[in-house]
Simulated assay, not measured.
Amino acid sequence: MSKYIFTVFLLVLTGCASSDPKISMEPPAYVEQLPAKENGLGQVNQGSLFGRGDNPLFSDRKAMNINDIVTIVISENTNQSSKSDKSTNKDSTLSLNAGAFSAGDDSRWGSVTNQLNRLTNVGFSGGSANKYSGSGSNTRNEAFTTTISARIIKILNNGNYFIEGSKELLINNEKQIVQISGVIRPYDISQNNQIESRYIADAKILYKTEGDLDRATTKPWGTRMLESIWPF
């Protein structure tokens, strides 16, 4: 019995831990499926002034080969605003009246029975009224700006680049981690070898902190466990 309780307890803890949002930095499936481009990258075209060798006379300083570095300018802004109102109203009334006395076909007693029915007022009536009114609003503004360098990991067959990059900062015993990955087009890289994050397809951007501040603002595992199973 104790073994069963311990197993259930572990399952509850696992469920609490898995409820935290996570992001996987694995490349998309098509990046793995598409073959790499192999058409003589890095070779100098004979007779051309614009080469791609080690020291060409004229060359573009933009990243173009595997392991070349490109600078990513991350500037993400999220603005969200929503408002909803709902109101319902329903009224229903039911009335069923019936006389308790009947004179049948005898007209002599008809006036008497009618008078008795009016006096007794025998009948049934019912009604209901339902009203609901609700409203809600939500406003959220977020901004994230930073710069990070990434490497070209793979040149796809169509000429696009799959890039990955990470950066770690340790400031006042607080560790900040930034990671990015995605697919970019070489045409979107500026002359300064920079590209904005809005031009990255299948972009995955991770930013997290580790340290005293993160521990102070994170709910303890016991609190998260109780919130996950508390029905009220």
Rank of each mutant, 00 (worst) to 15 (best):
I5E: 09
T7R: 07
V12R: 01
G15N: 08
C16M: 07
A17D: 02
S19D: 01
I23Q: 06
I23E: 10
M25A: 09
E26L: 12
P27T: 00
P27N: 00
P28V: 00
Q33R: 14
A36M: 06
K37A: 06
E38D: 12
N39R: 14
G47W: 12
L49R: 01
G51R: 05
P56I: 00
L57Y: 08
L57F: 13
R61T: 09
M64G: 15
M64D: 12
N65D: 13
I66K: 15
N67K: 12
I69T: 14
I72M: 07
V73W: 09
S75R: 04
S75K: 08
Q80Y: 13
K83E: 12
K83M: 05
K83L: 02
S87M: 09
T88Y: 13
T88E: 15
D91H: 00
S92F: 11
N97W: 05
G99D: 07
A100Q: 10
D106L: 05
S107F: 11
S107R: 12
R108H: 09
W109D: 08
W109M: 13
G110V: 05
S111A: 11
V112K: 04
T113M: 11
Q115W: 14
N117L: 05
N117C: 00
R118L: 06
L119H: 05
L119G: 00
T120V: 05
V122G: 03
S133M: 04
G134F: 03
S135T: 03
S135D: 11
G136W: 02
N138H: 05
N138T: 03
T139C: 03
R140D: 15
A143H: 09
A143E: 11
F144E: 08
T145H: 10
T147S: 04
I152T: 04
N158I: 04
N160P: 03
F162N: 00
E164H: 08
K167Q: 13
N172T: 11
E174F: 00
E174V: 02
I177C: 06
Q179Y: 01
G182S: 01
D188S: 12
N192S: 15
G211I: 01
T217A: 07
T218V: 03
T218A: 06
W221G: 01
W221Y: 10
G222Q: 08
T223A: 14
L226R: 09
E227W: 00
E227Q: 05
I229N: 06
W230T: 05
